[in-house]
Nucleic acid binder design. Structure first.
Lengths: 368, 368
DNA sequence: CTGAAAGCGCTTACAG
DNA sequence: CTGAAAGCGCTTACAG
């Protein structure tokens, strides 16, 4: 099948007007240096020098010869053109495997990227590195891919440093502290954190639990959780809201019960829970039921930073991989086409709130 | 960087013993047809015919000429050898996007495949096709990949038919009805279905609910759910166990409540639930609690066919993507190396039961 | 089954 | 800045 990267359609349809007249009959369809020379009105030696570049030929003559060569489909010139335009039509996705990585979250990004890239005729190469940046350098040096996307970007991420030394564009899905050598696209997680708190505040909630997944994600600086949480905490302080932040030790029903119990032990007045995760939402509801608390009548519940697999059990501030990935691909394509050279550009997309009826106005205390 | 697929190390280190004696001095390092002819002790025309293949040359002579050509590093022959051995070191993963596809389940397979493939120096190319088999043909014809893995294989899957016409090996992760043109690796889902029922039976359960995800998965014939369910139903019948099978209309808490209510409406004696899914397990526990039923004291619970993201809330019969993908990669590599030619081979891996204390002996009725 | 030799495409010092 | 012509690598009917 004809690949779009080699746009020599013009040559394909042209007919050969000058044919080489070898003495063993009429040769059809293969243009030689003789044909090019005749069409350009020069000697074969001049054509030879143009093709090899071993002697400087006057601009005008050279152009005429190239013109004739391309029109006749003279192989050496056509091949040279193809070589220079050669692209793999493959884009890499750098997906680190960290100890705490929830791979199920990656899937939505893979599919969103793949779907968007396909519109432009690009395939996706999966690049996993437990270790580091060696893989990025390898695929760039070996010209296996035309560009690289970064997933699960840390605040301090060595991949954004490495990008500077690569000869292909890198688009970071997520914001590192150093954005100078990459294009960055991300959701506005800080805005999301503020929005979550404000939403609860406007519904009358003044005691909120922040349910966070395992602590390691924060320690290693997985960028979006840190941004969301920091902004949420700060906004809560500004509004005078009491926040109880808890890191769940795990995802079993016991882990969830323990975490919920601890939070209510510290602040019995909690009336809303913001969970920075999706899978534990069902268990949180079960855990609250066990304490005799219903959602949303007694406790309002919201899931933020929800990745690919939405539980659909609560109001959500989802990651929206589709929007982010579409923009990432658009930026990548523009960079590959040479339409933009503003490396260091950062784009933050606004979050969308998905209501499912689990965030309601705080019930006023009936007694006491 | 030097890629392992081109093993011409031998040629690199050889020195040129015969050099072309052109009259403009001594040419070093470039072997011509003349040199090969001299070394092989034949005329240049014979060498020419061997290289072009336009005339049949006696086996012995031909071998001698090839030998000489390789020793001298004669470009046309060396290049031909390279071409024939050329491999991309990339393997495709065909991941269909069906309406009911839970992409989060794919992730574990992607990572397991990528990790296993990397051990052999292979990268993974993501291939999504809403439509069909065009993508497989494209990457095979364009020689973008060396082999293809199939994910989410249906009982009647056109991709297993297409495989017959491709010039690269195809390893199916999941069993289609037609396995003749591919290598197949899968968990033994039928065995898993029987095991699930037997486990419950041996614990005294005689009324079991089978909680199935959306009906469309079954209608379209997603292979593992059908195999699991059919085998489970049959084993239940053999053992005289009453099974209430329910298809959940969705994954919200309301969907789960509705499904559970329907099942208990049909058979109030249900004492164990086997859920063919992971994400709804938390909601099922919550739903049972709402009915005043506790897990496992009142109702035993097991999750089977659990994909990448285990909820860890119940006993599980997981998919074990790692084991399946490792075998798939091993088979692929062996096929690529020409070490096996038994296309049509099917390998079923036994399931492993993960106990978490939610399957216990049936409580004897206290009254009535 | 193979070689001697004519011929072609292309390169390149030489000439202007 | 370019051409005529010698020469090289390779191919291929022709001959045996």
């Amino acid at each position: 099948m004809w690949r779009a990267c080699c746009n020599l359609d013009k040559l394909e349809t042209l007919t050969l007007t000058h044919l080489s007249a070898s003495n063993d009959g009429i040769e059809v369809g293969v243009a030689g240096i003789k044909d090019v020379a005749a069409r350009a009105g020069v000697s074969i030696s001049t054509v030879s020098y143009v093709v090899s570049g071993k002697r400087k030929i006057k601009d005008e003559t050279r152009e005429r010869i190239y013109q004739a060569a391309l029109e006749l489909g003279y192989a050496p010139v056509v091949n040279a053109v193809n070589e220079s335009k050669h692209c793999t039509h493959v884009l890499a996705v750098s997906s680190p495997l960290r100890p705490y990585t929830d791979v199920s979250n990656y899937a939505a990004f893979f599919f969103a990227l793949a779907t968007a890239a396909k519109k432009y005729g690009y395939d996706l190469l999966l690049l996993m590195h437990e270790a580091g940046d060696h893989e990025m350098q390898r695929v760039a040096e070996d010209r296996i891919v035309d560009g690289i996307f970064l997933l699960d970007v840390l605040l301090s991420d060595s991949r954004t440093e490495i990008a500077a030394s690569l000869n292909i564009p890198v688009v970071s899905i997520g914001c590192a502290n150093n954005t100078s050598a990459v294009y960055s696209v991300d959701l506005d997680f800080a805005g999301m954190g503020r929005e979550a708190i404000e939403k609860a505040y406007l519904l009358g909630h003044r005691h909120i639990m922040l349910y966070c997944p395992g602590r390691h994600a924060f320690i290693e600086g997985s960028n979006f959780l840190v941004r969301f949480t920091d902004a949420a905490m700060q906004r809560a302080e500004e509004l005078g809201v009491t926040v109880t932040r808890k890191f769940a030790p795990g995802k079993t029903i016991d882990d969830v019960n323990l975490t919920i119990d601890e939070a209510f032990g510290e602040d019995p007045q909690i009336s809303a829970i913001i969970c920075e995760e999706s899978v534990s939402v069902g268990a949180i509801i079960a855990s609250l039921n066990r304490r005799g608390l219903r959602v949303p009548e007694d406790i309002s519940l919201m899931a933020a930073c929800v990745g690919g697999s939405s539980s659909r059990l609560a109001d959500e501030l989802p990651m929206n991989p589709n929007a982010v990935c579409e923009r990432a691909v658009e930026i990548m394509i523009a960079a590959l086409r040479g339409e933009r050279h503003d490396v260091g550009y950062v784009e933050l997309l606004p979050a969308e709130y998905h209501a499912r009826g689990t965030m309601i106005a705080r019930k006023l205390p009936t007694r006491n």
